[in-house]
């Protein structure tokens, strides 16, 4: 089987946001879109090296868009009604759309809700079935304290990203291995290794 390479990995949290400026309207994006976009920008990949329709995006949102859903719904009784902008972000795939717009990526996209264990398999499938030459994998975890209470889980505000390619982009590219299936621990491992070196 042909090899697949990891060109870069990143992890970002809410504390990385204040200094981030990705496009004129970054402030309008919901938190999950901001974190996902920042995680991708942190990979520092020159996507212009690829034809735009040969790059895919696979994203998983651990709690869908529930935090933005609740923000939108909390505005329902105000004069003028709830925010149209927030409604546009009540979809986990809004983050995929923002990444596609910011980097001009027109290839196929996938967006899942859950723990993200399928993400790398699906990105590899897009590359192996020759739909794309490279594929972003992003895992967004945004759970406000209010939503955490509703779903009885911990709150979170983080995103991690990987860029997988058919060919090694640089000598730093690392081959994707058989057991590299789960995006979160893989990003953590690669980012820890990078900061140690």
């Amino acid at each position: 089987m042909n090899k697949i390479f990891i060109a870069a990995a990143s992890i970002v949290t809410e504390t990385d946001l204040p200094s981030a400026r990705l496009g004129q309207r970054f402030g309008r994006l919901d938190l999950q879109s901001q974190l996902a976009l920042l995680a991708v920008a942190s990979l520092q990949i020159d996507f212009a090296k690829f034809p735009p329709d040969r790059l895919g995006i696979c994203l998983v949102a651990s709690a869908g868009s529930l935090t933005t859903d609740l923000n939108f719904w909390n505005g329902r009784s105000g004069v003028g009604g709830p925010s149209p902008t927030l409604f546009a972000y009540t979809l986990p795939s809004a983050a995929v759309g923002e990444i596609a717009i910011h980097f001009g990526l027109t290839g196929p996209d996938l967006c899942f809700v859950g723990d993200g264990t399928e993400l790398i398999t699906e990105a590899v499938d897009l590359i192996r079935s020759d739909k794309v030459d490279g594929c972003l994998c992003i895992c967004g975890e945004v759970i406000s304290t209010e939503v955490a209470k509703i779903i009885s889980g911990p709150s979170a505000a983080t995103a991690c990203a990987l860029f997988l390619t058919r060919a090694a982009l640089s000598p730093d590219s690392r081959e994707l291995r058989e057991f590299d299936r789960d995006i979160k621990p893989l990003c953590a491992l690669l980012c820890a290794a990078k900061s140690a070196s």
Binding site: A61, G64, C111, V113
Partner: peptide, 24 residues
């Protein structure tokens, strides 16, 4: 949580193979 809805539907309808939740 749509992924939990998917898991419960799979359990109730005899699907014990892979489960995915798509939201595009």
């Amino acid at each position: 949580q749509s992924n939990l809805l998917a898991a419960d539907l799979a359990a109730a309808h005899g699907a014990r193979g892979p489960v995915q939740t798509i939201s595009v």
